[in-house]
Amino acid sequence: MSRPRGEINVVCQNEKCLFYLKEEGKDIVKRGKYRTGHQRYFCHHCKTFFMETKGTPLYRKHLSKSEIINICKHLVEKNGIRSIERITGHHRDTISRVLEDLALHAEMVNDILLQEVELGQFEVDEMWTFIKKNKKKLNKEAQIQMSKVMPGYSIS
């Protein structure tokens, strides 16, 4: 008799899967780890593997969650990209890519900064204003996502 599966709080990340981002009816199991140390999951419905960080700002990053939160804290303090480079030891291009990914996942990042990091709404608004000012060449999707968390956003 096999032992029962443990609770897995991950949903399928494959857009072509019938159970894409659906909690009910999912059939996902853990299948080892990647070289980076991230857990690898397998969906039995669409027969694909995916990483636990897919769809987050951590996806395909060599930075840990704490390092990205540290960069966000420096952004809140209105440090420039080169200043953050000197403080954290990461290259300015890496920090710029993190800013781009933060903008693409603005709503998720906003919730994390407000709830987990316990920053105030004004501090988070200052960070988004800084990113918008310094990253003038954001792609269209990032601009849309950032406009949702900026003050004065209304659903139209």
Rank of each mutant, 00 (worst) to 15 (best):
M1N: 10
R3S: 10
P4C: 02
G6A: 11
G6D: 15
G6N: 10
I8E: 11
I8L: 05
N9D: 14
V11K: 04
C12Q: 02
C12L: 14
N14H: 10
K16Y: 05
C17Y: 00
C17L: 00
L18G: 13
L18Q: 14
Y20C: 00
K22G: 00
E23H: 04
E24A: 09
G25Y: 00
K26M: 04
I28S: 01
V29Y: 06
K30S: 06
K30P: 06
R31H: 03
K33I: 14
R35P: 12
T36Q: 12
T36N: 15
R40A: 13
H44D: 10
H44G: 08
K47L: 09
T48W: 11
T48S: 07
M51A: 06
M51Q: 12
M51F: 03
E52M: 09
E52Q: 09
T53F: 12
K54W: 02
G55F: 08
P57V: 11
P57F: 14
P57K: 00
L58G: 07
H62L: 10
K65L: 04
N70P: 04
I71M: 01
I71C: 02
I71E: 02
C72I: 00
K73G: 09
K73P: 04
L75D: 07
L75E: 15
E77R: 11
E77G: 04
K78S: 13
N79K: 14
N79L: 07
G80W: 00
G80E: 01
G80Y: 04
G80F: 00
I81M: 04
S83Q: 09
E85N: 03
R86Y: 10
R86P: 07
R86T: 14
I87V: 15
I87D: 05
T88H: 03
T88A: 01
T88F: 01
H90C: 07
H90M: 03
H91M: 00
H91R: 12
H91P: 02
R92Q: 12
D93S: 05
E100N: 12
E100A: 01
E100P: 00
L104N: 07
A106R: 01
N110H: 08
D111Q: 11
D111N: 12
E116Q: 03
V117K: 02
L119E: 09
L119Y: 15
Q121S: 10
F122W: 05
E126Q: 02
M127E: 13
W128N: 15
T129N: 13
T129D: 09
F130H: 14
K132T: 12
N134C: 08
K135S: 03
K135H: 04
K135W: 02
K136N: 05
K136Y: 08
K137H: 05
A142C: 14
Q145S: 08
P151F: 01
P151I: 03
P151M: 08
P151R: 13
Y153R: 08
I155G: 04
S156Q: 08
